[in-house]
Write a protein that binds this DNA or RNA. Structure first.
Lengths: 221, 221
DNA sequence: TAATCCCTTACGGATTTCCGTAAGGGATTA
DNA sequence: TAATCCCTTACGGAAATCCGTAAGGGATTA
């Protein structure tokens, strides 16, 4: 079993719950818990340079700002930074996000080994995830259906940009002018009009404010 | 010190962290943890009826749906239900919400004794909150400034209702018709037009979608 | 008691939105 | 090679939005 695990989690009560479970249920010998991404990164780097690396990183995704300036502001940034040091480090994400569209890239882009969704069975799932990761198997909390991520209408970068501009109060005319200034194509007012209409159909929205409201609530913009 | 405490928290890792701290740092004799509001309510009611009531309720605010149907879907609902049984029950809310506008009503309406914001110092604050509540003193996590809640432009019920309808894609004309059907006054299209314009000014929004986007992101609707 | 304030309501003009129709052109398919 | 598909772009009509002006009326104030 893993002997040396690093935990990055900014909630103290959650942190203690995890440490408690790892000690009592998995008898992990060496557990280091950090509340800040930067500190977790420094811990990881130091241990790696001393020839006694951490074998597993367990991290949350969102980290509240603290009093000190931060280089690494999220779990995703921490994973990337840590992978620069050790490309083969095993990573488990333990977060409250349950949207497959947001979880999928953690596997495809960040190559995590397991995803545990915080919930009523979260510690049990985390214990299982650690065991599976040790056996080189991928694990995802059972209630998460990653396959649905591929059937959900996904916003591309262009659509998202338009939507963000609309949410900022710009008119379609203003967005068109902005895209023309930035040499981004396509950029006519009609194109934007048409694309927004197609998004109405895709998301079942009646007008711009309905669409914006839906997408913000779903965490897409 | 309290001898019998009931905890309602739907994340297992957080739950265990809290129980661990209460046992090790406060030597609380009897701690009951529940993952569901309904179960926490039933526990409370049963203990009260047996003449051995819980002295303190520590609850989160948001609870994910589970497989079973729920009567009580939130910490707020649980607090209200529990207060119906014992109006003098002491309550500590332990949640990740840090918006004073959302925290203030917990004190003014639900009469909670303490609010602990989940964070890096969360367990320490929770321990302090329990001690303060025992001494009949109010406690709020230090980083929360409740006084700022009173300077923030607050939406009244009418405004909120209009905004929610706009976010649902209804036009001002449709909202006017709806208010007339429901005999809610005022209800003219012009009034709605004027009120929305005043909200533009109050929140610095350029149009409806800008306003809706801001308010959803701020957690006001 | 009269003046003032502010809300509700109406109206209208300019702009934007929503949606349908249509043309051009590049890529794909038969 | 011709037909088809789909995107981009344009245009126009009806509806909605945005915003200014104005009147009526209830409550407040001098």
């Amino acid at each position: 079993m893993f002997k040396k695990i690093l935990i990055a989690e900014d909630f103290q009560d959650t942190n203690k719950g995890i440490v408690n479970a790892l000690e009592n249920r998995l008898q992990i010998e060496e557990i280091q818990e950090e509340l800040y991404c930067d500190k977790a990164y420094n811990r990881f780097k130091l241990a790696f340079n001393e020839g006694e690396p951490y074998e597993l990183l367990i991290t949350d995704l969102s980290f509240k700002e603290g009093p000190a300036a931060r280089k690494l502001t999220s779990g995703q940034a921490l994973i990337k930074a840590v992978r620069d040091i050790d490309p083969n480090i095993k990573v488990i994400v333990n977060s409250m996000i349950d949207n497959p569209v947001e979880i999928n890239p953690l596997f495809t882009d960040l190559k995590i080994n397991a995803y545990v969704c915080k919930g009523r069975n979260g510690l049990n799932e985390l214990v299982t995830a650690i065991q599976e990761a040790y056996q080189n198997r991928t694990y995802v909390s059972p209630q998460i259906n990653l396959n649905s991520a591929n059937t959900i209408f996904e916003l591309d970068k262009y659509d998202r940009m338009i939507l963000q501009d609309l949410a900022e109060g710009l008119t379609k005319k203003e967005i068109s002018e902005k895209l023309k200034r930035q040499n981004i194509s396509p950029n006519s007012e009609s194109t934007i009009d048409k694309k927004v209409s197609r998004l109405f159909d895709a998301f079942g929205a009646k007008n711009i404010q309905h669409l914006i409201a839906k997408l913000i609530k779903e965490g897409r913009i």
